[in-house]
Design a protein around this nucleic acid. Structure first.
Length: 286
DNA sequence: CCGTTAACCTGAGAGC
DNA sequence: TGCTCTCAGGTTAACG
């Protein structure tokens, strides 16, 4: 489900609703996520206040107290639901992802907060919950590349990284060690705006190509955040509304449709690159 | 170090 | 209906 913009929208919603809420207890229904959820999570976190919620790339971080941080990754299908205890029966305005027929069997973790119940639902179980001490969390992020919104993702960084790299540019946009936060949807959208063919080898990109990659990575993610993310299934924000960036897609899921660039009369192609569907116009993306 | 592939999971939808 | 196949917003261990 979530790339950087969707996680950012979720973070902002959570901040509005549950910042400074006390965790009363945590119940684990199924600990078999990508990594086993530690049994100690309830003991570690209960009776503590969620002081803040932040985001780095596709990761959510619950700042519990000075040293303890809860790191959450939603994987491919993870969603967080918030149920207002007072409005339990009509919870439409309090659920971020308010699928009416949310299958209960995929509710794996439940946080009982003062005003809310926070539920983690994840059919495919590729997400994870991990507790870190402050220091070890920064070690964790030392192995994650900069996000496009960060100034570390600049022309020098990208050019140096691409020296002698034979892999195609699409694979690099999905490589979280190179740049973090971009996923399969935004990778295609970014390369379309750059007019760069996704199969182009990283080392053969020009200085201008690299400038465009830096610029559009940042601007497209920011636009998507402004639009509340992309809702291709039932992603909802805190007010129960869909994101709308899916209406702005220029190539993603537009196979065989006309290229939207004026003066280009190409058709959008779909090709599997590194096991992921990639959408592009081979007429204007060179 | 580099690049590729398989693997981790479930569910929806297409085609027969 | 029901079976099989493919695909889905992600990551990483293992291998040559």
């Amino acid at each position: 489900m979530p790339e950087l913009p969707e996680v950012e929208v979720l973070k902002r919603s959570l901040q509005k609703k549950i910042r400074f809420c006390k965790i009363i207890r945590i119940k684990i229904y199924n600990r078999n996520l990508r990594y086993k959820v530690p049994y100690s999570i309830n003991k570690n976190l209960k009776n503590n206040v969620v002081n803040n919620i932040s985001r780095i790339s596709k990761y959510l971080i619950f700042h519990i107290n000075f040293s303890k941080k809860l790191l959450i990754h939603l994987g491919m299908s993870g969603t967080i639901h918030l149920i207002n205890k007072k409005n339990f029966k009509k919870n439409t305005n309090t659920s971020f992802y308010s699928s009416p027929n949310l299958p209960l069997k995929h509710n794996h973790i439940e946080f009982f907060l003062e005003k809310y119940q926070l539920i983690y639902n994840d059919p495919r179980r590729f997400g994870f919950f991990k507790i870190f001490e402050k220091k070890s969390l920064s070690d964790f992020f030392n192995n994650v590349g900069p996000e496009p919104l960060n100034n570390k993702f600049n022309i020098n960084y990208i050019s140096n990284y691409f020296i002698n790299k034979k892999k195609n540019i699409k694979s690099f946009l999905l490589d979280q060690k190179f740049v973090s936060g971009i996923g399969n949807i935004y990778a295609s959208e970014i390369l379309f705006c750059c007019k760069i063919n996704p199969l182009k080898k990283a080392k053969s990109l020009t200085k201008l190509d690299i400038k465009k990659i830096r610029y559009f990575s940042k601007s497209i993610l920011n636009q998507a955040i402004k639009k509340g993310g992309s809702s291709i299934r039932d992603f909802k924000n805190v007010e129960g509304r869909n994101g709308s960036y899916q209406n702005e897609f220029k190539v993603y899921q537009r196979e065989n449709l006309n290229c939207l660039n004026k003066d280009c009369f190409g058709k959008i192609k779909k090709k599997v690159i590194s096991k992921r569907s990639t959408f592009f116009c081979n007429r204007c993306q060179k």
